[in-house]
Design a protein around this nucleic acid. Structure first.
Lengths: 125, 125
DNA sequence: GGACATTTAATGCTTGTGCAATTGATGCGT
DNA sequence: ACGCATCAATTGCACAAGCATTAAATGTCC
């Protein structure tokens, strides 16, 4: 573990954090201002619709997401409160829930998608 | 703007977020558990001591950090409450404040530095 | 079949963060 | 010298996130 290795490691980490925060803040602001969606809310909606499936189980949808279980649960709850998503019981396993995008949810996603991609392209392109 | 470009852009962003969250969470937990420091608190302390200067002005220290002004202000306040840092008035410009690491602050930093580097090396190395 | 561990999702609680507004000090133009 | 914009830092507020706990359903082992 040489000093220079440490130095580049820290520098690398700082770049990562800075980059992340810039993009995340911008994304959050744009999505919120233009579409009333938080970054995580869009992310969930995006993954749900992108899956191609009508219904997706909570646990399956949460898989691969950066959020904690509780944060994810609340994000979906927010989406449901906003009428963009609906939750339905799963008969096969009554612990699980199915999440489905509503018409409003699909419409909102279509709108917001452009903003999302634009911000990403601006920062990462 | 082709579909594949969009796809890799989103994938790139998701990778970035996932990586950031994994490292940040781990870092936060390790620093908190082993040294009673949050990630941002360590970051401020690290930059302060790394500067080599005895006193650094708040605004100068905040420069290049990922935190908002208010978050930064509160982070320094937390460090001060913990006795790791002290704030002193700047006579040249009475709006500004000087931040100085205390002995306890330097000691804590020395301890935590290893943990910090270790976590970074584990994830980024 | 009954006891116990595991899984799925939600909730109480605390905390760190950003935004907007505020306070106090400095600089600048007239 | 006065008024006004600007700058430095803090504070009120709302909110999203993580941790730990909980509740209900399922699985497993005997």
């Amino acid at each position: 573990m040489s000093g220079t290795e440490e130095g580049t490691l820290v520098a690398q980490w700082r770049d990562l954090v800075t980059c992340y925060n810039k993009v995340a803040c911008d994304l959050d602001r744009e999505l919120q201002d233009q579409h009333g969606l938080g970054m995580s809310e869009f992310e969930v909606l995006d993954r749900l619709i992108e899956s191609g499936q009508e219904k997706v189980r909570m646990h399956e949808l949460a898989e691969g997401m950066y959020l904690s279980q509780s944060a994810f649960s609340r994000t979906v709850a927010r989406l449901e409160r906003a009428g963009l998503v609906s939750r339905a019981m799963c008969m096969d396993d009554r612990r699980a829930l199915f999440v489905t995008a509503t018409e409003a949810g699909r419409a909102r996603h279509t709108d917001a998608r452009d903003t999302h991609r634009k911000v990403l392209a601006h920062h990462l392109g």
